[in-house]
């Protein structure tokens, strides 16, 4: 059955503030569809964002929403989850927000394995502030603060999340919104820290500087640069050079979730 998006959106806040064709809308739609398929009530959903184009998403959805500071969605989300363990707490922020200024909070939230769903709109750039390079700007490509091409190596968000202790890690892309929706849905249902690296197009700030100013062309490029986990397993390291691997890349159902651990601590303290 088709999703009735008006159930989940603050319709009076539309149209979206984003550039036409921006990947933010595709990722947001995937998230809403996933929530619809899970049948969750909007009263039970808390969405937290940082600052950036993608972070503006909290203004449009009819959940509990808070648009915080650049890089700081995760400490806020962690606190809210601790206060209301029964709520579904989601963060929705950019690659810069999540891995540059918010990088420290990111690894520590993963380490705690608190039950959050962290959606990173990974458009390879600081979209909102005019195309400066982020830790995800592909090496060699141009940014407004890397006019001769980026010399910085990149993070692999999935490896970072896994290494730091997250218990569900997936990567999807706006070039395959159905799979992206499925990964988000699994992440939402997972009890523990779920990270979804959502490759997205900022054709304006990254694209224009790198000959991909057309959103369709940029989504096509994302498609070329991505390969599923199954296909990747059969490829050589040379063939995988510069490719992003898609799929559910890590899942651990054993590690203790943080609000559970805290609940046990409270019981212990109260029975001393």
């Amino acid at each position: 059955m088709a999703t009735d998006y008006s159930k989940y959106l603050r319709m009076e806040k539309l149209p979206l503030y984003w550039c036409p064709g921006c990947g933010n809308g595709t990722v947001l739609k995937a998230m809403i569809t996933a929530i619809d398929e899970l049948g969750w009530n909007t009263e039970d959903i808390m969405m937290v964002s940082g600052i950036g184009c993608s972070s503006r998403a909290t203004g449009y959805v009819d959940f509990h929403t808070i648009h915080t500071l650049h890089g700081r969605a995760l400490p806020v989300a962690t606190a809210i989850k601790m206060c209301h363990p029964g709520m579904h707490v989601i963060t929705f922020s950019g690659d810069g927000d999540s891995t540059a200024i918010g990088g420290n909070h990111f690894i520590h939230a993963c380490r705690r394995n608190i039950d959050l769903t962290v959606i990173i709109v990974d458009n390879w750039i600081y979209g909102m502030t005019g195309g400066q390079y982020s830790p995800l700007t592909p090496t060699g490509t141009k940014a407004s603060t890397m006019p001769r091409g980026n010399i910085d190596p990149n993070f692999d968000i999935a490896e970072l999340a896994k290494g730091a202790g997250a218990t569900f890690v997936a990567r999807g892309s706006v070039a395959d919104p159905i799979s992206l929706k499925n990964y988000i849905k699994k992440g939402l249902a997972h009890k523990g820290m779920s990270v979804i690296d959502a490759l997205s197009n900022c054709h304006i700030q990254w694209g224009r500087r790198n000959k991909y100013g057309d959103p369709v062309k940029l989504v096509e490029l994302i498609k070329e640069k991505t390969v599923t986990k199954t296909k990747a397993a059969k490829m050589t390291p040379e063939e995988l050079e510069g490719k992003y691997i898609l799929g559910i890349l890590h899942e651990d159902k054993e590690k203790k979730e943080y609000t559970e651990a805290y609940k046990e601590l409270v019981e212990k303290a109260q029975n001393e």
């Binding site: 603050r10 909007t42 009263e43 039970d44 909290t58 203004g59 009819d62 959940f63 509990h64 929403t65 808070i66 648009h67 209301h84 029964g86 709520m87």
Partner: peptide, 8 residues
Amino acid sequence: PKYKFHMT
């Protein structure tokens, strides 16, 4: 939980 609102 009953009152949904936005803050920025």
